[in-house]
Design a binder for these strands. Structure first.
Lengths: 96, 96
DNA sequence: ATAAACAAGTTTATAATATAAACCAAATTT
DNA sequence: AAATTTGGTTTATATTATAAACTTGTTTAT
């Protein structure tokens, strides 16, 4: 009746991150920080977790002289997000 | 962009409980345990939290000689659930 | 009648998670 | 060249979720 929810996505910040990344080609650390309102520390940790799970890729480079970390969603991430949304909907349809 | 999610509802088990209770007049402990597949301990704890927040009421009585704990959702609970669902949907609409 | 097994929970301990605070290095501004 | 800002990482803390152990009483079997 209630499917298990992927604990990696059932987190406010990680869900927001994947949600953003699902809609764009790529996004860098600063952009994600601004959009989510997360602290840098929290963002760093949660990005690592998503990367460790293979849901996103993280590419470290430079924009001019400044370091710049770019994130992209992977096919696995896209799929996990879709499954999560599907599963979650079963929780939202009160009593149906 | 991403509204804050009520942490009380952003929990797999508590969300399932509220989802069930939103659809029925009342439900007892055993029924909730069966429907959610939760352990009794976890269920007990999460019911307490929902009750402490005023999202549900808990009535202790007997069915025959056996103790029986009956739960019902409150207006506050119904409203919180509706808000949560609304907020969550902003996370699910990838990039829109 | 009493021991064994079961029902309905609660309490307590542990493991996992989320989050923030503190820190670091390099670049930029004053 | 000192102070500030950018772009992070690491580490510590607080919260949460979960399971394990326990309690109280009931039913069933011997």
């Amino acid at each position: 009746m209630f499917p298990k929810l992927d604990p990696l996505l059932h987190s406010e910040l990680r869900l927001a991150l994947v949600s953003i990344l699902a809609g764009v080609e790529e996004a860098d650390f600063s952009y994600l920080k601004k959009q989510t309102g997360a602290t840098a520390g929290n963002l760093s940790v949660q990005i690592d977790k998503l990367a460790a799970a293979g849901y996103i890729t993280v590419e470290k480079g430079f924009k001019g002289k400044m370091p710049c970390t770019t994130c992209r969603i992977t096919p696995a991430g896209t799929e996990a997000f879709a499954s999560y949304v599907k599963a979650l909907k079963k929780y939202l349809a009160a009593g149906k």
